Simulated assay, not measured.
Amino acid sequence: MDAALAAVAQQCLAATHAGSLGFAAIVGMLIEAGFEGYAVDYRRGAQTFYLPDGQWLDFPLPDQAGLAAAAFDAAAVEAQIRWAQSGDPAYSYQAFSRHATAAGCAGYLVSFPGRRVVYYGRTSEVHIELFPQ
């Protein structure tokens, strides 16, 4: 794996957790670097970045969100997504992750070519969020 790609992925991960860049900016940086998506796995405490050629990079999450609840509450997960999109100055990724896992979100997969995020629960229930236009 190219060290420059690893640096971009690490920078995006750090910016997410620091709150210094929003989702759109992070997606733009990752697309420009050549990534096709990433996955956040709250159960493993890891984020994986994917390249189109099958290569991947795996990083530990800086903050552990906690165990995902057994029941997936799609409406509560969607409420967290709306909060993230709202521009609320009280928003933080750490709070988003804590609330999402409390709502049963075990992780999510971001697809740049698919322009969507699939949030999933421990029993594979899902909420699909299309990228804003």
Rank of each mutant, 00 (worst) to 15 (best):
R98A: 12
G121Q: 01
E78V: 04
S97H: 00
A100F: 05
A46G: 01
L61V: 06
A84F: 09
Y119W: 13
G66E: 01
P113I: 11
F49W: 12
E36L: 06
A65M: 08
A74K: 01
Y120Q: 05
A68P: 00
G54D: 06
D2C: 03
F96P: 01
A46Y: 00
I81C: 11
L109T: 15
A106M: 05
A70N: 08
L57D: 03
L130E: 14
S92C: 05
G22M: 07
T101L: 03
G114M: 10
A33H: 04
G34K: 02
Y50G: 07
E36G: 05
R43Y: 09
F96L: 04
E129A: 14
T16Y: 02
G28A: 14
A4K: 12
F49S: 00
V117T: 09
F112I: 06
F35I: 03
Q64F: 11
H99M: 11
M29T: 07
H99K: 12
A7Y: 06
A71M: 09
G121E: 02
T16S: 10
G28Q: 02
M29P: 01
I26D: 01
I81S: 10
R43N: 15
E78G: 03
R115E: 15
G28E: 08
W56Q: 15
G104M: 03
S92Y: 11
D41A: 07
Y38R: 00
A9S: 14
E129V: 15
A106L: 10
P60D: 15
A7D: 12
V126H: 11
Q80A: 02
A102L: 09
T16H: 10
Q47W: 08
E32H: 12
R82I: 04
F112H: 15
V8N: 00
A33C: 08
A95Y: 06
A68R: 01
Q133D: 07
A90Y: 09
Q11G: 12
S97F: 00
A71H: 05
Q133F: 08
M1T: 14
A46D: 10
A15E: 08
G104H: 02
V40H: 01
Y50T: 14
A24F: 13
F131R: 02
A15K: 08
A103D: 02
H99Q: 07
E78S: 10
L13K: 14
D63P: 03
Q133N: 13
G34A: 07
A24Q: 15
E129T: 13
Y119E: 06
F112S: 13
G66W: 01
L67Y: 12
E129S: 14
L5Y: 09
T123P: 11
G104C: 08
D63C: 04
